[in-house]
């Protein structure tokens, strides 16, 4: 393992454990400021969407690829439709990946 990997994993482990254990360690009943707890509920959606959208529209760190030749865009749109209709994680992953690979194979 490289030094980078050790620092990466050590750092991520400490941060994650710190977040999970912090309140358990203090041990008193905690009441979050309502604003803070409302804000925290938006974090997963905001972070994940901020990753999803550029990955679909700008794959491979190129520029914007608003075209049906972009399999990431086509597969991502399919995933959105499947997820909205089925609300099933496995169906979303497998259905959209199937289309993604099929699309790449058809375009190749």
């Amino acid at each position: 393992m490289s030094l980078f990997e050790i620092a990466l994993i050590g750092g991520m482990a400490l941060i994650t454990f710190g977040i999970r254990y912090g309140l358990f360690a203090v041990g008193h009943r905690v009441r979050f400021n309502p604003l803070v707890s409302r804000a925290l509920t938006y974090v997963p959606v905001a972070v994940l969407t901020a990753i999803i959208v550029p990955a679909m529209l700008m794959p491979g760190d190129g520029g914007m690829q608003l075209s049906w030749h972009n399999a990431y865009l086509v597969g991502g749109l399919a995933a959105i439709v499947i997820a909205a209709l089925s609300r099933n994680l496995l169906a979303t992953i497998f259905g959209s990946m199937l289309l993604f690979f099929l699309w790449r194979w058809l375009l190749a």
Partner: peptide, 14 residues
């Protein structure tokens, strides 16, 4: 793309 698909599957129902 699997990551993109997984994240979409998590976000959309929310």
């Amino acid at each position: 793309f699997a990551m993109v698909a997984t994240f979409i599957g998590i976000v959309v129902p929310l």
